[in-house]
Design a protein around this nucleic acid. Structure first.
Lengths: 215, 215
DNA sequence: TCCAAGAAACCGACCTGTTGGTTTGTTTCT
DNA sequence: AGAAACAAACCAACAGGTCGGTTTCTTGGA
């Protein structure tokens, strides 16, 4: 019965448990409702251990945000990767996106985004990891639209789609409108919209955003 | 110096001050940071008075939500009404929408929406007033697109636009993407999209949403 | 190989401040 | 006089954070 675990293993285990519990609590009770005690309990970890690994609540939530965004990135990649080659249309991508954004992970994400609105340190953390997640999503979605060569255009299309799906998620939380219908409509219009963007791309968009990231 | 005020005046004044202070606090400190003491202080009202008019925090915030959504409705109407007849294009409407959603009122709204996600009573209040606000916005935007006769289509278009703008607002808070660019693009694509919707409207959208509200 | 000493993980009691809500009393209008 | 609006003291609950002490692993010298 003697299970001798290395220190590294122990820290990894409890930290993992804590972060998972934190994310769960964010989903279930919101940011304010996510107390350190609750997290510790849920993680099956003593409060002392929690404070040892994450001295302050911000440390805890900050680490959880890192994990959360990383998880989301994997979730995206996973969901997209398993779409058969033949079905890689924009509509399908939107479906996948919508499903993910409807899940618990995005609830937690929205929670920290809103919390970050009035918490400078938190916001800094979020903005830091947001860029990475965005890059992942962009790369993935670009994968779904190989016909778009211009990286700027691709970026814009992805932006619009993601923005729309995100807005739909918020609408659902708020009880506005009919998010499902919006998504359905978006799915229908996605491809023609891309064409339209291609058409308007050369003109009228000059002034802003001259610099762009390049591989 | 004796200013004799009627009871009715007094209650109206302090309640008004409290609700305004509540909304301000929501904007500045978020839902969790909006404590009853803070609100009372900011309203220049004793805590006793506050508890007299709104015995519980939920009563306070609930009333504030009513006011908030009513304010938003007026703000929308106001902003839209003062757009000259000649400029009533969808693009212009989107600009107005974006400006409003970038303002403090929407920050407070998002705050309570997210809070409502994990607070049943709050959510009930929000869902209650959301319908009213939605109706206002729909009516207003329809005003900007008189060529859309079909109420179902009009509703859908408005839904999409509002969803997009809302998503852009959240994106900005989260540090995602380039919300301004998304809005710009939306403005460019709005009119062609309407045409496309008109084209696809007859087909493929049958199954869901057969019933609709009618004037 | 063994074992002492150090480091890291862990534990739970404790402290301080704040929260929402209650209660008791005072002022202002009716 | 009676009711309301208002004021402030008060309370229990709970938050995040600190702290002394215990257990578990690691390490390096005999």
């Amino acid at each position: 019965m003697s299970e001798r675990r290395t220190q590294e293993d122990r820290t990894a285990a409890t930290q993992q448990a804590l972060l998972k519990a934190t994310i769960d609590c964010l989903v279930e009770y919101g940011y304010a409702g996510t107390t350190t005690r609750l997290v510790a309990d849920r993680a099956g970890v003593s409060r002392g251990a929690q404070t040892h690994h994450y001295p302050t609540k911000r440390d805890l939530v900050g680490a959880a945000i890192d994990q959360l965004f990383a998880d989301q990135a994997s979730e995206f990649t996973e969901a997209f990767k398993q779409v058969p080659q033949s079905e890689r249309t924009f509509g399908r991508a939107i479906d996948a996106l919508w499903e993910i954004v409807s899940g618990p992970a995005y609830a937690a994400t929205l929670e920290v985004i809103v919390a970050g609105r009035t918490d400078d340190e938190l916001r800094a953390v979020i903005h830091g990891v947001a860029a990475g997640l965005e890059r992942t999503v962009v790369d993935l979605l670009r994968w779904f639209a190989p016909d778009i060569d211009d990286p700027v255009t691709a970026q814009r299309v992805v932006d619009v789609i993601f923005t729309l799906v995100q807005g739909a998620a918020v609408s659902r939380y708020g009880g506005f409108g009919d998010p499902e219908a919006v998504i359905g409509l978006t799915r229908l219009l996605a491809e023609p919209a891309v064409a339209a963007i291609h058409a308007t791309n050369a003109m009228a968009l000059g002034p802003n955003r001259s610099q762009e990231d390049h591989p």
